[in-house]
Structures are given as C-alpha cells and as structure tokens.
Design a protein around this nucleic acid. Structure first.
Lengths: 222, 222
DNA sequence: GTCTATAAACAGATAGAC
DNA sequence: GTCTATCTGTTTATAGAC
C-alpha cells in the first residue's frame, strides 16, 4: 500500500506504478504530468525535483537523469502546457456543433474557445505553470521561452482565429484574469465573502459549477 | 566607490549608504524597496534574503532580524505594494484636472486610473511582486494575504470608483494582462519581432514611450 | 530503465559582539 | 542599529550499482 501523501505536498492522483519498468517516453509523460502540478502550485524555484519525482512515483535522481536538469524539466513542462492549450483551442475552433442561432458564428467560436480555456483547469497546474513562466521574463532561458509561447498564443488569435488586435488583446486579458483567479485559489474563499463571491461569479458566468468541482478547496496545500 | 553590481543580480540604483546608522523605520523602507525589486524579478522562492540585503546595502542577517523571516518580509512587501497601488488609484480618482470634453467624466476617470496603474511600473518590481503573490494561492499565509489584497482592489473599483461588476472585471482583466507583459519583459523583444511589437502596441496605446523608457532592456537579468 | 548513496552548494536563521 | 561567524537543513546533480 502506498503511504498517504505527506501533508503539505502536491498529491497527484495518478498514482505511482511502484516498481514497474516503463518506456522512457511513457515515464517522461508521467513526469510531465507531475511537473505541471508541482510547478503550478509552487512555481519554478519553489518546486523541487524531489517533489516532482514523488508525485510521479520515481526517484529524484531519475527525474534529473531523464530531463538533464530542473531548468530543462520546467522548459519541457512549459512546452507541454502550451501544446495542450493550443490543441484545445484548435479543437474548439474546428468544432462544428450547431450553436445558438441567436449569436453570430464568430461569437459562438469565441465562446467555444473560452470554454476550452476554462476546461484546461482539468490539467492540474497547467494554467498556473504558464502564469509562473510568464512572470520569469528576466530568466535567460525561461524568459525567452515564455515570450515565444505567449507570442504563439497571440498568433493563434490573430491568424487562426481571425481576431483583430483589439479583440485579441481583450481575449487574452480575460484569460490572464482567469489564470490569476485560479492561481490565487479564490475558490478557497468562495462563499465565505460576499465580495469575493461576486467577483468569482462575474468571472465564470457559465462555468461556475464546473470550476468549483475541478478545483476542490485546499488542494495543493503547502 | 561602490563595486559594480555582480552580474546576474538585481541592482537597485538607490545605492547602499554604507556604514550609516539609520532609524529602524527608514531602514525598513529601504529594505522594502529592495525587496520589491528582488521578489519581483525572482519570485518569492527564487529571491534570497541575501540579495535583498545587498540591494539595500545591509547584511543578510539584519534583514531577517528586522522582518523576522523571509515570509514576513514578503508579506510586508506585498502590503507595501498594495498600499502604493491604492494610494495611486485614489490620487487619480481625486484628480480634478480638466479632461477632454469629448469623453464622459466616467471615461476620463477610468483613463486616469489606468494611467496610474501603468505609472506604477516606476516602482521597481511592484507589479511583478503582486503577480507573484497572486500565484501563491496555495501558500497558507501568502495565499490568504494575496486573496485579501485582490479583494481590496476589487472593492476599490466597485465601491470607490463606482463600477459595476462587469466593468470591474474588464478593468482588472486589462490590468492582469499589463502585469503579465511586464513580468514577461516583452520589452526585451519589442522591435525585433513584428508580432510582438503589434501585441505590445495594442496593450499600451498611449503609454508606450514611457513604458519603454522605464523598463530598459536587460534589466533584472539573472 | 531505475535506484541508493552522496557530494557540493546554498540559504535562512541564530548567537553574540560592537 | 548593525555586523561577522556559523549552524542546520535543503536541494540539485553526479557516481555507480542492479
């Protein structure tokens, strides 16, 4: 029986397959899942390779061995997060499900993309890891990668989705606010403070029940 | 002559008054200035009390002595940042300078507040420290303080500025995007990539020259 | 492919002098 | 009010075995 996750750690449900030998690729994927959760909760510097390793069910030196260094691991996690996000956006863009005839097709697409963005909270730590990366602009390696990634998202809105500069900016702004509220874990105060409740409701007009369910209170405690 | 700042450190112009004995209050203020710069560039975990101390021109143990712990120092810096921001907002709100008669008084006020927000980039690390705090929602002490601070800003918009929930949200969203672009140091790529240049221009329609001047390239390198 | 052991570097905090 | 010296725990990374 696996011991319960030590209090104060970022427990990843995806339990460690203790003792199993996997392909390098599969392990990498497992570790990336763990890395998103841990980096998301603690940030680049706050996260330890050991915590990532424990969350993935492997030893700490093995994580370093597979990715070369903590920095590389973070860069890989960042890449992974961006790839997942753009994949989600593209799926939403391609979605042909009939929409409410009251709204224009453009508006329907925008709603789908927004929904896809919110749905990504199901990938533990994804939004938070991206936000942490965006704050590391001064870091020589991470900063450059983060800027590139941010530009990639911008280009998606402009080129693939066809928004103009102002619409893109407004879209990204809403996204940044949502990320902030996730990272802040406003959920933890939702319901206990009327002002916070109002703020939260205003940010998630339609997805509220879903968000409350996917971000259970007290997750990722230190 | 003070030695040049070690490469990779967060140099704070406000040079250390080597050897001077100051009042505890004055020292606290100096250290808080340094703390905002260092926490802003490196984040809570990435920052070291030693770097804050060197930026402030005092010894590392003295920083810990004055503030009790690194965590307390961060909380103090967060409080300071929020107080400065709200003070800036209130000054902008009270500002009676005649405005463009083409725009409504409400719009003019919103512009002034937006301007005040952007102007805060002059306080080194302020926006970045706030953004880092907002990402630490899982931290037992910092997370709670960050949520409170965020709610305070929300209340300013709603109660003092008189915006409705949707307007407040849109305002904060723009703010979060601006913070993100500052933390990302998009300035560092401005001009070299047409897409980034467009993005940046779109975010700072009026304040561009000012922003480029106050955030010189390569500042805060690691 | 994966682990144990461990080296090497740090960073936060304390003690105690001036 | 402020410093130097230093203890202690932590963390990344390497070596080498299985």
């Amino acid at each position: 029986m696996t011991p319960p996750a030590a209090s104060g750690s970022v427990a990843v449900d995806d339990a460690p397959d203790t003792g199993k030998r996997l392909s390098s690729e599969e392990r990498r994927r497992q570790i990336l899942v763990a890395a998103l959760a841990v980096f998301g909760a603690r940030g680049y510097e706050g996260a330890t390779t050991d915590e990532v390793a424990r969350a993935a069910g492997v030893s700490q030196p093995y994580v370093v061995r597979l990715f070369g260094s903590k920095e590389n691991l973070f860069l890989a996690a960042l890449d992974d997060a961006l790839a997942r996000m753009l994949a989600g956006f593209r799926a939403a863009l391609a979605d042909q499900t009939p929409h409410d005839p009251e709204v224009t097709p453009e508006k329907a697409t925008a709603q789908r993309i927004g929904q896809a963005y919110v749905d990504l909270i199901e990938v533990r730590g994804l939004h938070q890891t991206l936000a942490h990366a965006y704050l590391l602009g001064s870091h020589p390696a991470i900063g450059a990668a983060a800027r590139q990634g941010f530009a990639k998202v911008w280009r998606f809105f402009r080129d693939e989705m066809g928004l103009d500069a102002d619409e893109s900016r407004a879209f990204m702004a809403e996204g940044m606010l949502i990320s902030t509220m996730i990272g802040l874990r406003i959920v933890d105060d939702y319901g206990s403070d009327p002002q916070i409740t109002e703020l939260f409701r205003s940010c998630f007009p339609t997805e509220l029940p879903h968000v409350l369910e996917v971000l259970p209170r007290g997750t990722d405690r230190w």
